[in-house]
Design a binder for these strands. Structure first.
Lengths: 196, 196
DNA sequence: AATGAACTTGGACGCTCGTCCAAGCAAGAG
DNA sequence: CTCTTGCTTGGACGAGCGTCCAAGTTCATT
């Protein structure tokens, strides 16, 4: 796992894993029947980690009396997204690894040998769920209603965050990413109306 | 190049390239001093192709008397983005390759041996320029003014498209992508005001 | 025709990879 | 004590990789 983050998914070899774990070659093949299975396990672990990290960031939204209405919604969304920032900025290698895993999963989707279980699809399904839960919680606390299905809004928001983070990985413009996140908050908040 | 699209950047070996080109091993090393140089050349070619494809799609916007104002701007943006759709849907493998190249460029950025010239950065710089040019042209035709620097808007729009396309590669939900593109048009159009 | 530079060939080298296996080791069950 | 079972070792194997090179071919210039 550490190897994958630091040196890329292409550098994850059976030998490297064995050395990092402090065991001999054979043990790796005793635990994982093949390298494919090893990568699948790593992918699932990463997805789990990612999803949990999102849940933790979004878990900070709590009921409060002064967070009602569209202004309150903006505040809530801003808190949630801001909570993700330190994690992202602090682990650029892991963010990159996420994209690598996604790309690899897409590439080997056809030739997937029973294992692997469509990591890419699983990843986005989990992130969808976290985002939907977060948006629903925000709407409830702020006492507003989404004008369009919350699933669509989650899709849009995730795509935006995805693109913004990838862009940040390239140019490392922290201010630009923060500005884009703020804009994301505005875009999403514009898709709600206050309850009558 | 065909190999990279069909089987992934990891499958681009000197031998595979030689076989596809119908030449022997040594020729490849006669043309490219090392594999690194070969990959850099492929990356640059891809970036060129991508940029040209964007320019072609955006080139369709032309002056017209009924495209004035914010409504006209929306129409223009919609035309430009819609023009990209057939290319994207028709070449999913190439889209995936783009993300693979970006990831690989980011991974090998530190250990880049003089060649490679920061493919990832170059890629986004070119796309930025195309997007900025497009947005500026749209604003001029529609006789509107961007409320924020056009560079920021281009960044946001590109990030959104980037995330949406990546998402489409995963779930292949064509309708979802179209809906997201429409939403992109609305988000961007909201950042302009009609000229006094 | 002779020369030299540009290009091509096919194979060899050393390396790393995933996979496999015979043998060794620890420890609970009989 | 003696099996048996679960786990570990270190090495071997073949395949594929990037790189390199001596020899062969082509072809415009002299």
């Amino acid at each position: 796992m550490t190897i994958a983050e630091q040196r890329g998914v292409a550098s994850v070899t059976v030998r490297a894993v064995a050395e990092e774990a402090g065991v001999s070659l054979g043990v790796v093949h005793y635990c994982f029947e093949s390298k494919e299975e090893l990568l699948a396990a790593m992918g699932e672990s990463l997805v789990q980690q990612l999803s949990e990290s999102m849940r933790q960031a979004f878990g900070e939204v709590k009921h409060a009396p002064d967070l009602r209405g569209l202004a309150g919604l903006q505040e809530l969304l801003h808190i949630g997204l801001s909570q993700m920032l330190p994690t992202i900025v602090g682990t650029p290698d892991r963010q990159l690894l996420t994209y690598e895993i996604t790309a690899q999963a897409l590439r080997h989707r056809a030739s997937a040998g029973e294992h692997s279980a469509d990591i890419a699809g699983q990843q986005y399904r989990k992130m969808d769920n976290e985002a939907i839960e977060f948006l629903s919680a925000c709407a409830e606390i702020a006492e507003v209603r989404w004008k369009t299905p919350v699933e669509e809004i989650a899709r849009l928001g995730l795509a935006l965050v995805d693109g913004v983070v990838l862009r940040w990985l390239v140019d490392r413009d922290r201010e630009g990413m923060i500005a884009a996140f703020d804009e994301t908050v505005r875009v999403i908040a514009a898709k709600a109306v206050e309850l009558p």
